[in-house]
Every structure is written in C-alpha cells, then in structure tokens.
Amino acid sequence: MARNETPLVMPGNSSCAGCGAVLIARLVTEAIGPNQIMVIPACCMGAVATSFPKATFNVPVLRTAFASTASFLTGLEASAKAKGQEVTLVGFAGDGATVDIGLAALSGAIERGHSFVYICYDNEGYMNTGFQRSGSTPRGAQTSTTPGGALGRYKAEPRKDIAKIVAAHGIPYLATASPAYPADLTRKVERAVAVKGPTFLHIMSPCPLGWGFPSANSVELARTAVESGLWKLYELDHGVLRLSLSPKKRKPVKEFFAPQSRFAHLSDDVYEELQRAVDEEWTTIEKEGFSLRCETSRA
C-alpha cells in the first residue's frame, strides 16, 4: 500500500479554482483506495483527467464517450468476471452524462445488476462546454441556453430527480451526498463499495464559474443547500430509506440562491414561493416520514 503515500488525485491538474467536482473526485477516490478502475465520460472531470502525457488520477482511468459510462462498467464487469479479477469499478460522470445522454445505458446497467459504484457529480448543467442547461438544471436558473433575455426565458422546468429514477429500478444501494459533509460522503462511498450489485451516489457539485459565485464559497454553498433543506442527504439501502440529516433549524433558501449570479433575476416573490415549497415538503416529512414519492412540482 505504499502508493497511498502519494495522492490519488494529483495536484496541479486543470480543474478550475474552487471546483466542487474535483473535490468530490478526491474524496471518492480516496474513500475507495487504489484497487479501482474508473470510467469517466465526456464531462468536466473527463477534461481534468489528463494533461497529456500527465494523468490527474493515480488509479487506472478508462475514458469513454458521453453516453457510455454505464455500458463501459458493464463490459468491465463482464471482463473482470471472466478474469476472476477483484476490483471496484467506478463510474464518475457529470449530470449531463447521467440524467440526459447516458440515462438509457445507466438504466440498463442497473437493471442487469452489474456490480459497480456510479457517482453522479451534479453541477446542474453542461459546465464543461459553457453552462448550457441539462435535465438536472433547477427551475429558474439562467444558463447559456436558457439565457432569460428580453422575454425572461430562464429554465422553466423543474429538474428531473435522477435519484428517484434510479430508486425505481430497485437498486440495492443509493445515496445522496454533499462535499460539505465529507464524513457522510466517505461513509456512503465505502458502503457502496461493500454492496454487491449496482450502487449509485448523487452528489451536489457546486461550480463557481457556471453558477456564478466566488470560488471560496463552493463548500459553504453546498452546506447551505443542505441546511436550507433544498438538498436532502439520504440513503436507500436494500429498500430501507433513511435521511442522513434533518436540519433542525433550516436556513432560508434565499441564502442558497442569492449568492449565485444564475439566480440573480429571482424576485422576493419567487423566493417566498421557493421557501413555501421547501417548508411544505419538510412539514410532510416531519409528519409522515421521509419517502421518495413523486411531488407534482419541485423547485
């Protein structure tokens, strides 16, 4: 294990200052350790993975095309079985590669029950290509393809909830996590590695450039998302659903939205509406317990 003395994510890589995704990559990679093979599709971490001939990750990484993270994991699992190889297979993909273009492959791979850890670091849009909207961009966000403009065309639709979609497959283990709660994140990654069959982690990944906030605030913003009740930390372990954390005194949701330039156009009316929606959701959770039922409308 001498290799552990050197970092598993090398410093001086090409990630932006304050990048949430590379922080998540470091926490995840360190939690799993050197006996892993990573698959990274087109996404921010795909770009960060190499500055040829130097590699950022100190574990084997197989780069793949945008839609193919889960199908690469499928093939790797089959080959590992054929070779009798014991290794953790990790998919590390952004939200675009997961909830949009790679969704069919992900769904198929989970349904077939292959053993892998799939990490979706969710920076809520196509950040590597200049902040276009994805299916995971929250309602109201300004992106380069929902620019607002004279007609106020911001993203009009609520994000799709990938964790619920994944849960609907009856996946053995699913969790949400946040880089602001590294101990919780690490524990969940370790659990995912231990579980046989497909596992999925959905991790909020603040993006200073795309979301428009100072790079120092990445972790703080991720924490505010949890403390305001917007980003729920939970896990679904073989059918048992559990909240990892219930913020006792929730911060106003405005504290999450207001520092980000992509929400700069939101009025107090909207904040009140967003606050009301979150409050209602948590009132229900407190009354009826936490569930993954489908709300008709989400923030």
């Binding site: 093979i37 698959v39 197989l62 793949t64 095309a65 839609a67 193919s68 889960a70 199908s71 690469f72 994991l73 499928t74 093939g75 790797l76 089959a78 080959s79 590992a80 054929a82 070779k83 190889q85 069919a104 492959a105 769904s107 198929g108 349904e111 077939r112």
Partner: peptide, 17 residues
C-alpha cells in the same frame, strides 16, 4: 445489453481490460 451503442461500448471496455 439495452442498445447496440452499449453493446459495442461494453465490448470495447471488456477488450480494454
């Protein structure tokens, strides 16, 4: 698998291993 795109992708990954 669930599509030909994934069929070839999985085959590539296996062969890479």
């Amino acid at each position: 698998v669930e599509s030909e795109h994934s069929a070839l992708a999985a085959t590539i990954a296996a062969s890479s291993n």
